[in-house]
Simulated assay, not measured.
Amino acid sequence: MASGNMKDIKRRIKSVQSTMQITKAMELVASSKMRRAKERALAARPYFNTIYQTITRLAAATRDNSSVYTRPREVKNSLFVVIAGDRGLAGGYNANLFKLAAAQMDGKNAQVITIGKKAQEHYAKRAWPVTQDYPGIAETMKISDTHEIVSQMLELFRGGAVDEVYLCYTRFISPLQQEPTCIQVLPARFDAQETEPASGPQVLTEYDPSPEAVFDAVIPEYLYGVLYGAVVESYCSEQSARRMAMEAASDNAGEMIENLNLSYNRARQAAITQEITEIVAGSGEVGA
Protein backbone atom coordinates (compact mmCIF):
# COMPACT_ATOMS: atom_id res chain seq x y z
CA MET A 1 0.00 0.00 0.00
CA ALA A 2 2.78 2.40 0.98
CA SER A 3 4.75 1.42 -2.11
CA GLY A 4 1.84 2.37 -4.36
CA ASN A 5 1.44 5.70 -2.55
CA MET A 6 5.17 6.43 -3.04
CA LYS A 7 4.91 5.74 -6.77
CA ASP A 8 2.00 8.17 -7.07
CA ILE A 9 3.94 10.88 -5.23
CA LYS A 10 7.04 10.28 -7.36
CA ARG A 11 4.95 10.53 -10.53
CA ARG A 12 3.40 13.77 -9.27
CA ILE A 13 6.82 15.24 -8.51
CA LYS A 14 8.02 14.53 -12.04
CA SER A 15 4.87 16.08 -13.47
CA VAL A 16 5.25 19.28 -11.43
CA GLN A 17 8.95 19.48 -12.33
CA SER A 18 8.05 19.31 -16.04
CA THR A 19 5.47 22.06 -15.58
CA MET A 20 8.01 24.17 -13.71
CA GLN A 21 10.47 23.89 -16.59
CA ILE A 22 7.79 25.20 -18.97
CA THR A 23 6.82 28.12 -16.72
CA LYS A 24 10.49 29.05 -16.22
CA ALA A 25 11.06 29.06 -19.97
CA MET A 26 7.93 31.16 -20.55
CA GLU A 27 9.06 33.60 -17.85
CA LEU A 28 12.42 34.09 -19.60
CA VAL A 29 10.78 34.56 -23.01
CA ALA A 30 8.30 37.09 -21.58
CA SER A 31 11.13 39.00 -19.89
CA SER A 32 13.02 39.24 -23.15
CA LYS A 33 9.95 40.38 -25.10
CA MET A 34 9.04 42.86 -22.38
CA ARG A 35 12.44 44.56 -22.61
CA ARG A 36 12.11 44.99 -26.37
CA ALA A 37 8.51 46.21 -26.05
CA LYS A 38 9.51 48.70 -23.35
CA GLU A 39 12.17 50.12 -25.65
CA ARG A 40 9.55 50.51 -28.41
CA ALA A 41 7.13 52.23 -26.03
CA LEU A 42 9.78 54.67 -24.80
CA ALA A 43 10.87 55.39 -28.38
CA ALA A 44 7.28 56.19 -29.42
CA ARG A 45 6.61 58.70 -26.65
CA PRO A 46 8.62 61.65 -28.10
CA TYR A 47 6.64 61.39 -31.35
CA PHE A 48 3.34 61.31 -29.50
CA ASN A 49 4.34 64.22 -27.23
CA THR A 50 5.29 66.36 -30.23
CA ILE A 51 2.08 65.66 -32.14
CA TYR A 52 0.04 66.20 -28.97
CA GLN A 53 1.64 69.61 -28.34
CA THR A 54 0.97 70.57 -31.94
CA ILE A 55 -2.67 69.58 -31.83
CA THR A 56 -3.31 71.32 -28.51
CA ARG A 57 -1.98 74.56 -30.00
CA LEU A 58 -4.31 74.07 -32.95
CA ALA A 59 -7.19 73.31 -30.60
CA ALA A 60 -6.53 76.63 -28.85
CA ALA A 61 -6.89 78.39 -32.21
CA THR A 62 -10.15 76.56 -33.05
CA ARG A 63 -12.00 76.72 -29.75
CA ASP A 64 -15.33 77.44 -31.42
CA ASN A 65 -15.86 73.69 -32.04
CA SER A 66 -16.11 74.29 -35.77
CA SER A 67 -14.25 71.05 -36.55
CA VAL A 68 -16.24 67.87 -37.09
CA TYR A 69 -13.68 66.11 -34.87
CA THR A 70 -14.33 68.30 -31.81
CA ARG A 71 -18.00 69.26 -32.20
CA PRO A 72 -20.17 67.68 -29.47
CA ARG A 73 -22.95 65.39 -30.67
CA GLU A 74 -25.95 63.63 -29.27
CA VAL A 75 -24.58 60.15 -28.63
CA LYS A 76 -26.64 57.40 -30.22
CA ASN A 77 -23.96 54.92 -31.31
CA SER A 78 -20.51 54.29 -29.88
CA LEU A 79 -17.39 52.57 -31.20
CA PHE A 80 -14.89 50.86 -28.91
CA VAL A 81 -11.43 49.86 -30.08
CA VAL A 82 -10.39 47.13 -27.62
CA ILE A 83 -6.72 46.11 -27.52
CA ALA A 84 -6.09 42.78 -25.76
CA GLY A 85 -3.44 40.08 -25.92
CA ASP A 86 -2.83 37.40 -28.52
CA ARG A 87 -2.16 34.66 -25.93
CA GLY A 88 -3.31 33.64 -22.49
CA LEU A 89 -1.36 32.68 -19.36
CA ALA A 90 -0.98 36.37 -18.43
CA GLY A 91 -2.84 36.45 -15.14
CA GLY A 92 -5.77 38.86 -15.13
CA TYR A 93 -4.42 40.99 -17.99
CA ASN A 94 -7.17 40.24 -20.52
CA ALA A 95 -10.00 39.74 -18.00
CA ASN A 96 -9.38 43.11 -16.32
CA LEU A 97 -9.47 44.93 -19.66
CA PHE A 98 -12.68 43.21 -20.77
CA LYS A 99 -14.31 44.03 -17.43
CA LEU A 100 -13.46 47.73 -17.80
CA ALA A 101 -14.63 47.82 -21.44
CA ALA A 102 -17.92 46.14 -20.49
CA ALA A 103 -18.49 48.77 -17.77
CA GLN A 104 -17.87 51.54 -20.31
CA MET A 105 -20.21 49.93 -22.89
CA ASP A 106 -22.99 49.37 -20.37
CA GLY A 107 -26.16 51.12 -21.51
CA LYS A 108 -24.68 52.19 -24.86
CA ASN A 109 -25.43 51.05 -28.38
CA ALA A 110 -21.83 49.96 -28.97
CA GLN A 111 -19.87 48.21 -31.68
CA VAL A 112 -16.31 46.95 -31.41
CA ILE A 113 -13.05 46.88 -33.34
CA THR A 114 -10.82 44.22 -31.77
CA ILE A 115 -7.03 44.16 -31.77
CA GLY A 116 -5.55 40.91 -30.48
CA LYS A 117 -6.66 37.30 -30.73
CA LYS A 118 -8.10 37.21 -27.20
CA ALA A 119 -10.29 40.23 -27.94
CA GLN A 120 -11.45 38.56 -31.15
CA GLU A 121 -12.40 35.37 -29.27
CA HIS A 122 -14.04 37.29 -26.42
CA TYR A 123 -16.35 39.49 -28.51
CA ALA A 124 -17.23 36.69 -30.92
CA LYS A 125 -19.29 35.28 -28.03
CA ARG A 126 -20.79 38.59 -26.88
CA ALA A 127 -23.82 40.61 -27.95
CA TRP A 128 -21.84 43.63 -29.18
CA PRO A 129 -21.35 43.58 -32.98
CA VAL A 130 -17.74 43.41 -34.18
CA THR A 131 -16.87 45.80 -37.02
CA GLN A 132 -13.42 44.38 -37.72
CA ASP A 133 -10.84 42.05 -36.15
CA TYR A 134 -7.06 42.59 -36.15
CA PRO A 135 -5.43 39.59 -34.44
CA GLY A 136 -1.69 39.00 -34.20
CA ILE A 137 -0.44 42.49 -35.13
CA ALA A 138 0.79 43.84 -31.77
CA GLU A 139 4.26 42.24 -31.70
CA THR A 140 5.34 43.62 -35.07
CA MET A 141 3.21 46.78 -35.04
CA LYS A 142 4.41 49.73 -37.13
CA ILE A 143 2.93 53.20 -37.35
CA SER A 144 1.82 52.44 -40.91
CA ASP A 145 -0.22 49.48 -39.62
CA THR A 146 -2.50 51.91 -37.78
CA HIS A 147 -3.63 53.69 -40.96
CA GLU A 148 -6.29 51.14 -41.92
CA ILE A 149 -7.77 51.05 -38.41
CA VAL A 150 -7.80 54.83 -38.00
CA SER A 151 -9.29 55.31 -41.49
CA GLN A 152 -12.10 52.96 -40.53
CA MET A 153 -12.69 54.87 -37.27
CA LEU A 154 -12.78 58.23 -39.07
CA GLU A 155 -15.05 56.94 -41.81
CA LEU A 156 -17.61 55.70 -39.29
CA PHE A 157 -17.35 58.92 -37.26
CA ARG A 158 -17.54 61.36 -40.17
CA GLY A 159 -20.37 59.41 -41.77
CA GLY A 160 -22.44 59.57 -38.58
CA ALA A 161 -22.50 55.80 -38.05
CA VAL A 162 -20.92 56.39 -34.63
CA ASP A 163 -21.00 59.51 -32.46
CA GLU A 164 -18.06 58.76 -30.18
CA VAL A 165 -14.97 56.54 -30.27
CA TYR A 166 -13.24 55.03 -27.24
CA LEU A 167 -9.85 53.35 -27.08
CA CYS A 168 -9.53 50.60 -24.44
CA TYR A 169 -6.01 49.35 -23.71
CA THR A 170 -3.67 48.52 -20.83
CA ARG A 171 -1.28 51.28 -19.80
CA PHE A 172 2.25 50.18 -18.89
CA ILE A 173 3.27 51.83 -15.63
CA SER A 174 6.10 49.55 -14.50
CA PRO A 175 7.12 45.89 -14.89
CA LEU A 176 5.05 45.20 -11.77
CA GLN A 177 2.04 47.40 -12.53
CA GLN A 178 -0.29 47.64 -15.52
CA GLU A 179 -3.52 49.63 -15.58
CA PRO A 180 -6.50 48.99 -17.91
CA THR A 181 -7.66 52.31 -19.37
CA CYS A 182 -10.46 53.59 -21.64
CA ILE A 183 -10.02 57.01 -23.23
CA GLN A 184 -12.30 58.94 -25.57
CA VAL A 185 -10.49 59.85 -28.78
CA LEU A 186 -13.42 61.21 -30.81
CA PRO A 187 -14.80 63.81 -30.50
CA ALA A 188 -11.31 65.01 -29.55
CA ARG A 189 -11.13 66.72 -26.18
CA PHE A 190 -8.24 68.61 -24.66
CA ASP A 191 -7.64 69.95 -21.19
CA ALA A 192 -8.69 73.60 -21.05
CA GLN A 193 -5.44 74.49 -19.27
CA GLU A 194 -3.40 72.88 -22.08
CA THR A 195 -5.20 74.84 -24.78
CA GLU A 196 -4.84 78.16 -22.94
CA PRO A 197 -1.96 80.27 -24.31
CA ALA A 198 0.98 80.55 -21.95
CA SER A 199 1.71 83.91 -20.33
CA GLY A 200 4.48 86.10 -21.69
CA PRO A 201 5.65 86.73 -25.25
CA GLN A 202 4.31 84.22 -27.75
CA VAL A 203 5.33 83.29 -31.28
CA LEU A 204 2.48 84.11 -33.62
CA THR A 205 1.73 81.12 -35.82
CA GLU A 206 -0.09 81.61 -39.09
CA TYR A 207 -2.04 78.61 -40.39
CA ASP A 208 -2.70 78.24 -44.10
CA PRO A 209 -5.40 77.97 -45.31
CA SER A 210 -6.93 78.15 -41.79
CA PRO A 211 -6.42 76.73 -38.29
CA GLU A 212 -9.53 74.56 -38.78
CA ALA A 213 -8.23 73.04 -42.02
CA VAL A 214 -4.81 72.32 -40.50
CA PHE A 215 -6.47 70.86 -37.39
CA ASP A 216 -8.60 68.50 -39.51
CA ALA A 217 -5.49 67.42 -41.45
CA VAL A 218 -3.46 66.74 -38.29
CA ILE A 219 -6.18 64.76 -36.47
CA PRO A 220 -5.47 61.50 -38.40
CA GLU A 221 -1.75 61.82 -37.60
CA TYR A 222 -2.64 62.36 -33.96
CA LEU A 223 -4.84 59.24 -33.96
CA TYR A 224 -2.09 57.20 -35.64
CA GLY A 225 0.22 58.11 -32.77
CA VAL A 226 -2.39 57.47 -30.07
CA LEU A 227 -3.33 54.06 -31.47
CA TYR A 228 0.27 52.99 -32.05
CA GLY A 229 1.25 54.02 -28.52
CA ALA A 230 -1.75 52.17 -27.05
CA VAL A 231 -0.90 48.95 -28.95
CA VAL A 232 2.78 49.12 -27.96
CA GLU A 233 1.97 49.81 -24.30
CA SER A 234 -0.63 47.02 -24.27
CA TYR A 235 1.86 44.54 -25.71
CA CYS A 236 4.47 45.58 -23.14
CA SER A 237 1.86 45.23 -20.38
CA GLU A 238 0.90 41.77 -21.66
CA GLN A 239 4.49 40.54 -21.50
CA SER A 240 4.94 42.05 -18.03
CA ALA A 241 1.76 40.39 -16.79
CA ARG A 242 2.81 37.06 -18.31
CA ARG A 243 6.26 37.29 -16.75
CA MET A 244 4.72 37.89 -13.32
CA ALA A 245 2.19 35.08 -13.79
CA MET A 246 4.87 32.59 -14.85
CA GLU A 247 7.15 33.68 -12.01
CA ALA A 248 4.32 33.06 -9.54
CA ALA A 249 3.56 29.70 -11.19
CA SER A 250 7.22 28.67 -10.94
CA ASP A 251 7.34 29.67 -7.26
CA ASN A 252 4.16 27.71 -6.57
CA ALA A 253 5.55 24.68 -8.41
CA GLY A 254 8.75 24.84 -6.34
CA GLU A 255 6.73 24.99 -3.13
CA MET A 256 4.58 22.07 -4.29
CA ILE A 257 7.70 19.99 -5.07
CA GLU A 258 9.03 20.65 -1.57
CA ASN A 259 5.75 19.51 -0.01
CA LEU A 260 5.63 16.41 -2.24
CA ASN A 261 9.23 15.52 -1.36
CA LEU A 262 8.30 15.81 2.31
CA SER A 263 5.28 13.54 1.76
CA TYR A 264 7.46 11.10 -0.20
CA ASN A 265 10.05 10.93 2.60
CA ARG A 266 7.32 10.38 5.17
CA ALA A 267 5.78 7.59 3.09
CA ARG A 268 9.20 5.98 2.60
CA GLN A 269 9.93 6.22 6.34
CA ALA A 270 6.54 4.68 7.10
CA ALA A 271 7.26 1.84 4.65
CA ILE A 272 10.68 1.17 6.25
CA THR A 273 9.16 1.22 9.74
CA GLN A 274 6.47 -1.23 8.67
CA GLU A 275 9.07 -3.61 7.17
CA ILE A 276 11.17 -3.51 10.35
CA THR A 277 8.05 -4.17 12.45
CA GLU A 278 7.13 -7.16 10.28
CA ILE A 279 10.70 -8.55 10.48
CA VAL A 280 10.78 -8.21 14.29
CA ALA A 281 7.36 -9.77 14.62
CA GLY A 282 8.40 -12.63 12.32
CA SER A 283 11.64 -13.31 14.21
CA GLY A 284 9.71 -13.38 17.50
CA GLU A 285 7.36 -16.04 16.18
CA VAL A 286 10.28 -18.11 14.87
CA GLY A 287 12.03 -17.89 18.26
CA ALA A 288 8.85 -19.02 20.04
Results as ranks from 00 to 15, higher is better:
R35S: 14
Y224E: 00
R243V: 01
V112E: 06
G92D: 09
Q21C: 08
E164C: 09
I279P: 03
A270M: 07
S263C: 08
P72W: 09
V150E: 00
Q177R: 15
V16E: 12
T50K: 08
E164V: 05
T195Y: 03
R268K: 15
A90V: 04
N252E: 13
P180T: 00
G284Y: 11
K76G: 14
R40L: 11
A95S: 15
Y235P: 00
R189M: 07
Q177L: 10
I143Y: 00
Q111L: 10
F215G: 08
S234W: 05
T56S: 07
A110L: 05
K142H: 06
D8N: 12
M153W: 02
F48H: 04
P211V: 06
E155N: 13
N261A: 10
Q193M: 15
Y69W: 12
P209M: 03
H147M: 08
V203H: 08
A119V: 01
M244S: 13
A161M: 07
G88Q: 13
L79R: 04
I272C: 05
R171N: 13
E27L: 09
G282F: 09
R57A: 07
P201G: 08
H122M: 05
D64R: 10
G88R: 14
R243F: 06
P220I: 01
D64L: 06
R36M: 11
E238M: 12
L28A: 15
L176E: 15
R35I: 07
G92S: 15
A25D: 15
G229R: 00
W128R: 08
I115N: 02
S18E: 14
G136R: 10
A241C: 11
L100Y: 05
R63N: 14
A213P: 02
A267V: 05
Y69K: 06
A43F: 10
Y222E: 01
Q193Y: 14
A217S: 07
T273H: 09
L186G: 01
